[in-house]
Design a protein around this nucleic acid. Structure first.
Lengths: 219, 219, 219, 219
DNA sequence: CATGAATGAGACTTCATTCAT
DNA sequence: TATGAATGAAGTCTCATTCAT
C-alpha cells in the first residue's frame, strides 16, 4: 500500500531499485508535486523525473494522469483508521488526555508528514474529480468522524464531558485539523513571519479551549 | 464591488456596447467557474460565454487569464473590512453577542455568497499564484485576524472573557469559518446526506462551544 | 495622388483637418509603419492612431489592410517618371554630369524621403503580394530602367561613353540605389558606427567608379 | 552546415525516431518557407509538414517560432568566412582574376543556393528582429566587408588597382551582390521575361565595369 | 461620417499519451 | 520492461474586420 517516506536503504543506487518499488515512488513523487502545484499544473514528466524514471515508464504503471491522481489519493489515504481505532479503544486514562493524545498522534502520523498534503489536494481538486472526493468522504471523512465521535462519546459516558450534539461537536476537532493543513500547504509559503502558525502550539491552544468548553461545569 | 447584472432588455441585442458593465459581468462569471472547476480547468471561452460575450471581448478587458483571476480575487475581496470594523466598534451589547453577531454577519455577507468561493480558490491555487496568495494574506487574512483579535480583546477588557493567548485564540474563530468554506465548496457536492453540514447550526454550535471555553469560570 | 510629406499648414489642429486629407494621411502613416515593421507586424490600429483617426475610420477609406497596402504602394510610387524623363531630356551638358545629376536628384526626391521605404517594402513583401510586385515592376522598375538606359545611350551617342551591353549596364546604376535603400531601411539601425554609410559619399564614390569604367579609354 | 535530407527509406515509417536529422530538416524547411512567404506569413505547421513531422515535433527542437528563425539564420550563415579567407589568401594570379573568382565563388556557394534567401529574409525582417540583424551584421556583413577589402588592398599593393577610398569601394562589389539577391527573391517571380536578369551575365558585366574603373589608367 | 466595443477565425504553444526502438 | 521522440488535441491570445451608436 502506502510506501512510508523514508526507510529505503540509502545505499541503494537509484537505477538499481527493484521494479516493485516503482509505483510507490511515482505516487510519492506525484503526491509532492500535486500538493505543491496542483493537479493541472503538474506535468507528468516532472513526476517521472522526480521518481527517477522516464515519462514512458510512468504510463506503464498508471494508464493516465488521472489514474495516477486517483492512485495517489487511494494509496496515501489507505486504511490507517482500523489501527487507530484499536489504539484509541484500548486507551487508558481520562478523556481529556485521550483527546490530546489523539490530536498529537494525528499530527505526528499525518499532519506533519507528506501525507498531509492529500487533504489540501482533495479539497482543491474535489470539484474536478467528484469521484475522488466521494472516495475521500468514505475512506477518510466518515471514519475520522466516527473515530472522533467515539472519543467524545467516551467522555460523555464517563461523565467527563457534558452532553452535546455530537454530530456537530466532532467538527470542533476536525475544523482545526483541516484548517491547519490548508494553512500549512496554501498560506505558509506566502505569509509574513508574524502570521506563521506553530502547529503544536496551535493544536494545544485549540484543544485546551475546546476541552474547556466541553468539560462539565463543576470540574 | 462589481455591478450586479443589470436589467437587460429581454430582447438581448447581439452586439450591445456596455463597456461599464462588462468587467463586472466577466468577473462574476469567472468567479463562479473558477470556484466550480478550478483555475486551470476553466476555459476563458466558457467565462466569456457565461458573461454573454465572445472570447475576444474578455481579452479587451483583461490582458490574460491570469489577470482575470487576479481581478476576480481583488474585486470580490475588495475592502469590506473598514465597514465591518466600524460596525463592530459601535456594537452595543456584551461580547458573547458580539461574537455571535460577527459570525452570523460573516456568513450572510461572505460565507453564503459566491464570494465565499474565493477562499477555496486562493487556497487551491496559492502555490500557482504566490502573488495572489500574498495579496490575499494582506487584504483579507491580516485584516480579518485583526478584527477578530479586537473583538476578543474587547471581551477581555470588559471582564467577559478570561485572559488568553490572543495570537492563537483568534484561530478558534477563524478555523471554523475556513473549514466551513472548504467543506461547502469541496465536500458538500459529494457528501451523503448524513454528512451534510447545516451552516448556521454549525456556526452556532462552534461558537457556543468556543465561547463557553472562553468565558470566565465564575459565570 | 501622393501627399507630399510636409506642406500641411502647421496651425491646422489635428481634429479639424479636412476629410479629403484623410486617405493621404492614412497612407503616409501606413507607409512609415509598414516600412519600419513590415506589413504583417503592423497593426491597423497603429496606422489609424498615427494618422489621428480611429480604427473604424481607416476601414471607411480602405476596405482591408491589404487594400491599404496596395494603396500605399500605388500612391507613393505614382508617376513621377514622366516629369523626370522630360527633365533629363532637356538636360544640357555632358553625360557624366547628367549621370551625377540624375543620381543626386534621385537621392533628393526619393532616396532621402519617406518614399524611399517603398522599395524596401515591396522587396520584403513581394512574395506575399505578387500583384504588388508586378505593379511595381511595371510602374517603377521598367520606367526607371528605361530612363537610365536613355541616359547611357545618350552618352554613347555623344561619344562620351564606350559601347556597352545596355541591358545590363543600367544595373550598374540601379544596383547601388537599391542597395542603398535596403541598407538604409534594414541595416542602418543595427549597424555599428564603423559600418554606417554616408549616402552622398556612397553615391559619389559609386558613380565615379562606374563612370570611370564607362568612359572611353582615351579620355 | 545542416545535414542534407538523407536517403530516407522510401517506405517512410510513420513515427521514425531521427533525433539527429530533425533540426537540420526543420531548418531547411523553414528557410525555404520563410524566404518564400516571409516570417509572419509562414505557419509553423507548414514548416513541420514540409519537414515531414508534426507541429509538436518542431517545438521539441525549437522553443518558439522566433528561435527557429534565429536558428535558420545562424545555421545557414554559419562560419564559411574563415575557409574563404584562406582560399583567397592563397590565391595565385592577378587581382582582376581574383575578383572574378571571388564573385563567381560567391554565386556558386551562396547566391545560387537556398542560403541566398537569408539575406532577403534578414533585410525584410530586420526591424522585427533587431537581434538577428545585429547578428547578421557581425557574422556576415562585417567579415564579408573585410574579405573584399583585403582583395582590393591586394590589388593596390600589387600595383594593379589604383588608389581608392576602400571603405566605400568595397560597396562597389557588395552592392551588385545584394541587389542580385533581392532581385532574385523579390522581383524575378513577377518580372516579365524582358526584365529577367541572368545572374552570371549580370555578375560578369558588373565586375567588368567595376574592374575597368579600378584598374590603373595606364593598363 | 466617425467611433471604438465586439467579434471570431486563426496562430502559437503545451503536454498527456503513444509507440518504435 | 524502459525509453524518449513523436504526435495532435486543446487552450490562450491576437487582431483584422464589423456594426451599433
Amino acid at each position: 500500500m502506502h510506501t512510508p517516506t523514508p526507510s529505503l536503504p540509502p545505499e541503494a543506487p537509484r537505477r538499481a531499485r527493484r521494479k516493485e518499488a516503482r509505483p510507490g515512488e511515482l505516487i510519492e513523487a506525484a503526491l509532492a508535486l500535486f500538493v505543491e502545484k496542483g493537479f493541472a499544473a503538474t506535468r507528468v514528466e516532472e513526476v517521472a523525473a522526480r521518481a527517477g524514471v522516464s515519462k514512458g515508464t510512468l504510463f506503464l504503471y498508471f494508464p493516465s494522469k488521472e489514474d495516477l491522481f486517483k492512485a495517489v489519493v487511494r494509496d496515501t489515504v489507505a486504511g490507517r483508521f482500523p489501527e487507530w481505532a484499536d489504539e484509541l479503544a484500548e486507551f487508558q486514562g481520562d478523556s481529556v488526555e485521550l483527546v490530546r493524545y489523539a490530536m498529537h498522534t494525528w499530527w505526528e502520523r499525518v499532519g506533519m508528514t507528506p501525507a498531509s498534503g492529500i487533504t489540501k489536494l482533495v479539497m482543491a481538486e474535489a470539484s474536478t474529480f467528484p469521484e475522488i472526493a466521494s472516495f475521500y468522504q468514505n475512506e477518510v471523512v466518515a471514519p475520522g468522524h466516527d473515530l472522533i465521535r467515539r472519543i467524545l462519546q467516551r467522555g460523555i459516558d464517563r461523565g467527563e464531558f457534558r452532553e452535546m450534539p455530537l454530530d456537530y461537536a466532532v467538527y470542533s476537532l476536525i475544523a482545526p485539523m483541516i484548517f491547519l493543513l490548508m494553512w500549512k500547504h496554501a498560506m505558509t509559503p506566502c505569509a509574513p513571519p508574524s502570521q506563521q502558525i506553530d502547529p503544536l502550539t496551535f493544536i494545544d491552544t485549540q484543544v485546551d479551549l475546546i476541552l474547556s468548553g466541553m468539560l462539565k461545569r463543576n470540574q
